[in-house]
Simulated assay, not measured.
Amino acid sequence: MITPTQSMTQPYAQTQSGTQSQTSALTSDFETFLLLMTTQAQNQDPLEPMDSSEYASQLAQFSMVEQQVQTNDLLAGLSQGSVNLEELASWVGMDVRTAGEFHFDGTPETLFAQADPAAEDASIVIRGGDGTVIDRVAVPTTATEFTWAGTDSDGSPLPAGTYSATLESYDGEELLSEQLVSVYNQVIEAQVVDDTILLTLESGQVVPAGTVTAVRTGA
């Protein structure tokens, strides 16, 4: 059984902000110090060369500045890594809305989809994890949110498991479009692969974070 429902969920967006380090300024000072020291060495009077103790002091200062630049670069890298870990951790446990399979746990499931604007009729088709059609239900073309009770065409309760649903749009007998409905799944793992955040969902799917259209607090 599938019934149209009114949307009560507001998309949730996350924003991030950051600040730039002062490494570039320190690097500039380091380069300026190196240039001055080199120029001083090149233009010293051969008859009155620079005092060795003064030269050693400048070398020590040079070494200290160089170490500070390297330390700042290392800290900047560690800071960036921490931000990535915090971002990954923020996904885990959240419910995200994506198009694809969903995990049915025995409670009614909310499905999101919109029929083709030119459609005269629309139907939602429920499939099991193996792709077998379980139920086909006519729905209003103007509805965008539906509640699936988790039953087959005879009204018998279905077992918990992985399911999928598509919304078919028709103009008479002509199939205009067929699209996967979107559902909420809980994120059980988040990882970075080739600079892309991949989310592993409770349904078993792995989806890029960029395909998520809404986020809400996990149950």
Rank of each mutant, 00 (worst) to 15 (best):
residue 121 D to R: 14
residue 195 D to E: 15
residue 185 N to M: 06
residue 205 Q to Y: 04
residue 11 P to L: 05
residue 26 L to Q: 06
residue 18 G to E: 09
residue 16 Q to C: 08
residue 90 S to A: 15
residue 193 V to C: 01
residue 159 P to N: 09
residue 108 P to R: 04
residue 55 Y to V: 14
residue 15 T to G: 12
residue 201 L to W: 01
residue 151 T to I: 11
residue 54 E to K: 14
residue 127 R to H: 07
residue 47 L to K: 08
residue 73 D to C: 09
residue 191 Q to G: 05
residue 173 E to I: 07
residue 136 R to D: 13
residue 119 A to M: 05
residue 6 Q to L: 14
residue 94 M to Y: 04
residue 54 E to P: 00
residue 101 E to C: 06
residue 117 P to Q: 09
residue 194 D to F: 07
residue 168 E to M: 06
residue 187 V to L: 04
residue 44 Q to R: 10
residue 158 L to N: 06
residue 73 D to I: 15
residue 78 L to E: 13
residue 68 Q to D: 10
residue 210 G to D: 12
residue 101 E to Q: 14
residue 106 G to H: 14
residue 125 V to G: 02
residue 159 P to S: 12
residue 135 D to G: 05
residue 118 A to K: 11
residue 21 S to K: 07
residue 162 T to L: 08
residue 45 D to M: 11
residue 34 L to N: 12
residue 95 D to M: 09
residue 60 A to K: 08
residue 173 E to M: 10
residue 113 A to D: 00
residue 24 S to M: 10
residue 91 W to A: 00
residue 167 L to C: 00
residue 218 G to A: 05
residue 49 P to E: 00
residue 214 A to R: 00
residue 218 G to K: 06
residue 28 S to P: 01
residue 110 T to K: 08
residue 12 Y to V: 05
residue 134 I to K: 00
residue 206 V to G: 07
residue 205 Q to P: 03
residue 205 Q to H: 08
residue 91 W to I: 02
residue 1 M to Y: 11
residue 183 V to T: 15
residue 52 S to I: 14
residue 113 A to C: 08
residue 206 V to T: 15
residue 7 S to K: 07
residue 128 G to N: 09
residue 102 F to H: 01
residue 36 L to S: 04
residue 117 P to N: 04
residue 73 D to Y: 11
residue 11 P to M: 02
residue 23 T to Y: 05
residue 108 P to F: 03
residue 11 P to K: 05
residue 70 Q to T: 11
residue 120 E to N: 14
residue 185 N to K: 02
residue 214 A to T: 01
residue 206 V to F: 05
residue 83 V to N: 12
residue 92 V to T: 13
residue 191 Q to F: 08
residue 106 G to I: 13
residue 145 E to H: 09
residue 97 R to W: 01
residue 37 M to A: 11
residue 85 L to V: 11
residue 142 T to F: 08
residue 214 A to H: 02
residue 122 A to M: 04
residue 180 L to Q: 12
residue 197 I to S: 04
residue 32 T to H: 10
residue 5 T to H: 03
residue 186 Q to K: 13
residue 187 V to S: 03
residue 128 G to H: 07
residue 213 T to I: 13
residue 21 S to I: 03
residue 15 T to R: 10
residue 64 M to P: 04
residue 25 A to N: 10
residue 39 T to L: 08
residue 106 G to A: 13
residue 199 L to Q: 03
residue 20 Q to L: 10
residue 122 A to E: 01
residue 176 L to N: 01
residue 188 I to K: 08
residue 184 Y to C: 01
residue 123 S to V: 07
residue 92 V to H: 00
residue 75 L to W: 10
residue 14 Q to L: 14
residue 31 E to Q: 15
residue 37 M to I: 03
residue 214 A to I: 03
residue 207 V to T: 06
residue 195 D to R: 04
residue 135 D to C: 06
residue 172 G to N: 03
residue 78 L to D: 06
residue 142 T to V: 11
residue 71 T to Q: 12
residue 2 I to E: 02
residue 79 S to R: 12
residue 92 V to K: 02
residue 115 A to I: 05
residue 89 A to Q: 10
residue 117 P to G: 01
residue 174 E to Y: 03
residue 43 N to M: 09
residue 162 T to H: 07
